[in-house]
Write a protein that binds this DNA or RNA. Structure first.
Length: 388
DNA sequence: GATTCCCGCCATGAG
DNA sequence: CTCATGGCGGGAATC
């Protein structure tokens, strides 16, 4: 059973792309991105998609970082769908600013929270996500007996790399005005520092993770793989939530591979600095613009919002080289869910207090608004919006 | 030759 | 212990 599933045919067509994470992710979405789905079993996914679990972990980890999923229990994930993305992004953005992502501090060297990696001692004990300032497990020297042996610690332990890497990667886009980041730059930021030195070595090794992440995010269409216009250097372009709707609407199966630069018809692609980003360089390099890009979501909701699988026939996903595509946004034939809107009201008031930032608060209001119109438009669907 | 990145070994952690 | 999770990097397919 090991190895590729020999189809008993002269498969000179064997290609890695047929098994790429991106494609697998697309199939994954095709499988679960439809109404009624609310929980996902890893075994189920693995067997249905015909891959080993290991791969499912990869996908699920990055998807979770973007809010499409969330772990519920062992082997069980809660499906949130694309509608979970906006909130997740807002949170990431806030965190990003809270951290050092957007600071123009002269002596800021502590880039991200973790991930420094060097030759020796890989994987520094992560400082844990900044989920809550509550914990005070200062952990003095010596041995700290277990503190709160319930959950908290576990969560701390979790989130090692792929998930964290994904989050940081996304923050990079959200907290800067750059919509195009080259692979090199991203790697430099996520792996080490701008200091030219050792980093080079592990760089190559870690970059592999970047590819993994990029592939998954690409299939979600949050980003797109391209090249810098002038240089042929590979780069990632942030698409946010807009492209997605259009693509699926006009959505030909887009093989995720032949796309090279198919739709270069971007609107905001007019003039981007030909001189590389301001990332590399000296201390001044870290001056990312603080003006958050707020538009990355607003437009989306007006443009077409998030699409949901609405195929009446529930066509199955495919294993072939073609992405099944997450169907198109059609008309749901369900009665208006006025009730849903009501839920959102309370939902919003439930979440609102969480944000201290006025900006975020406003943003959130915007989402809620968008959600309302979206729901009343799409109606139907009986997934009980998982709170929190 | 350089990029891209799949495969799966095996460390680590939960139960 | 077993099983679930997921670093990590060798090395092969692609460019």
């Amino acid at each position: 059973m090991a190895g590729p599933p020999e189809s008993g045919s002269r498969d000179h067509t064997y290609s890695r792309k047929q098994k790429s994470l991106g494609l697998l992710c697309s199939n994954f979405l095709g499988l679960y991105n439809r109404d009624g789905v609310e929980s996902i079993g890893l075994d189920d996914a693995a067997s249905k998609l015909g891959v080993e679990r290991r791969r499912i972990y990869d996908i699920v980890n990055v998807l979770e970082s973007v809010g499409v999923l969330s772990r519920k229990a062992k082997n069980q994930y809660t499906w949130k769908g694309f509608k979970g993305i906006p909130k997740a992004l807002a949170v990431l953005r806030e965190q990003g600013f809270r951290e050092n992502f957007g600071s123009s501090d002269g002596s800021s060297r502590a880039k991200f929270q973790v991930i420094e990696c060097d030759d020796d001692t890989n994987s520094i004990p992560d400082t844990g996500s900044q989920s809550e300032p509550s914990n005070s497990n200062a952990s003095k020297d010596g041995n700290e007996n277990d503190v709160i042996s319930n959950g908290v610690l576990a969560e701390n332990r979790r989130e090692k790399s792929l998930g964290l890497l994904t989050k940081n990667f996304v923050k990079l886009f959200l907290c800067s005005d750059a919509d195009l980041i080259s692979l090199d730059e991203a790697a430099k930021f996520l792996l080490g520092d701008g200091h030219n030195s050792i980093v080079m070595r592990n760089n190559a090794a870690k970059v592999r993770r970047l590819y993994d992440i990029a592939n998954v995010l690409s299939s979600i269409r949050l980003i797109e793989k391209t090249h810098q216009a002038d240089t042929r250097k590979p780069a990632f372009r942030w698409l946010g939530l807009r492209e997605r709707a259009e693509i699926s609407l006009a959505g030909p199966p887009v093989p995720i591979e032949t796309r090279k630069r198919t739709f270069g018809a971007d609107i905001t692609n007019v003039s981007f600095k030909r001189n590389k980003m301001d990332f590399p360089g000296g201390e001044e390099a870290k001056e990312m613009k603080l003006h958050a890009k707020t538009e990355y979501m607003e437009d989306d909701f007006h443009t077409g919002c998030l699409q949901q699988d609405t195929r009446p026939n529930s066509r199955s996903y495919q294993y072939g080289p073609f992405a099944p595509v997450t169907a198109v946004k059609g008309a749901m034939s369900e009665p208006k869910s006025t009730k849903r809107i009501h839920d959102l009201e309370s939902l919003s008031s439930t979440f609102r207090p969480q944000y201290q930032n006025q900006a975020i608060k406003d943003l959130f209001d915007h989402y809620v608004d968008a959600w309302k119109s979206w729901y009343s438009e799409a109606a139907g669907k009986n997934s009980p919006e998982p709170v929190s």
